[in-house]
């Protein structure tokens, strides 16, 4: 599907991940792990830019528009499918068809709130699910997520991940939760110290393997692995 060959990755002039080599195959579920600040997001954004035509991105910053309703925020995933005039009109007066579709998506994501509610009034977990809903509404074959479940409890995270796997051929996620990665993904890539430290099938790995490459129980996975 995509091959990254001898590529320097970074932002601006600063190279964070020099000389990266990676091949992504279609219909794969890939988890990218590694200590914070190592360049996982940089890698994911690079992958996204290569595959933007067929990919939906659920970024860590979410990019939600606080002043718009849940409906409009999710609808933004479908902007490219409609003409500009349709989009403008929908901003003033929401159409029924996308409303129904979005309502279904929200229910699947266990987001049982009125669609007209403003995003600014939602909790962190709810916001994350609106961002997921927007990605789902893009109807793309590839899903890329940057810690898309970090604000959800692990059980719900698992359920939603399954939903995403059902709706997309390929899923590529940056994750903190190593357990979640091992349980649900086919392939694990660990980034550490500016390079790809590990790239293996998930079923050959355990938490102990991973902890050789970085401290698995860092602050964000701590409560999960403890519980």
């Amino acid at each position: 599907m995509l091959a990254v060959v001898d590529t320097d990755l970074g932002y601006g002039q600063k190279v964070i991940l020099p000389n990266i080599n990676l091949t992504l195959n279609p219909s794969e579920h890939v988890a990218i792990l590694g200590p914070s600040g190592v360049g996982k997001t940089t890698l994911l954004h690079h992958l996204y830019q290569q595959l933007a035509e067929q990919t939906c991105l659920c970024s860590q910053a979410q990019g939600l528009v606080d002043n718009l309703s849940i409906y409009h925020n999710v609808f933004m995933g479908g902007l490219a499918r409609h003409s500009r005039w349709y989009n403008m009109a929908n901003l003033l007066l929401p159409f029924t068809q996308p409303q129904q579709q979005i309502s279904v998506i929200c229910q699947q994501l266990e987001l049982n709130l009125p669609l007209q509610k403003k995003v600014s009034e939602l909790s962190g977990g709810q916001r994350q699910r609106v961002a997921l809903a927007r990605a789902l509404f893009q109807h793309q074959p590839v899903f890329m997520g940057d810690e898309p479940f970090s604000a959800l409890d692990p059980l719900m995270g698992g359920r939603l991940l399954n939903l995403i796997k059902q709706s997309h051929q390929s899923v590529i996620c940056v994750l903190h939760d190593a357990e979640l990665a091992l349980a649900h993904f086919d392939r694990i890539i660990v980034i550490s110290a500016g390079k790809v430290a590990l790239d293996t099938k998930a079923n050959q790995l355990t938490l102990a393997h991973l902890s050789q490459h970085y401290v698995v129980t860092d602050e964000s996975t701590l409560p999960h692995s403890a519980g």
Partner: peptide, 20 residues
Amino acid sequence: SQTLFTLPKGTDKLSALIYG
């Protein structure tokens, strides 16, 4: 500016500007 980054590829400029 993050919103623009997450918008689907192929979104027309006007929609991106207004929504994003």
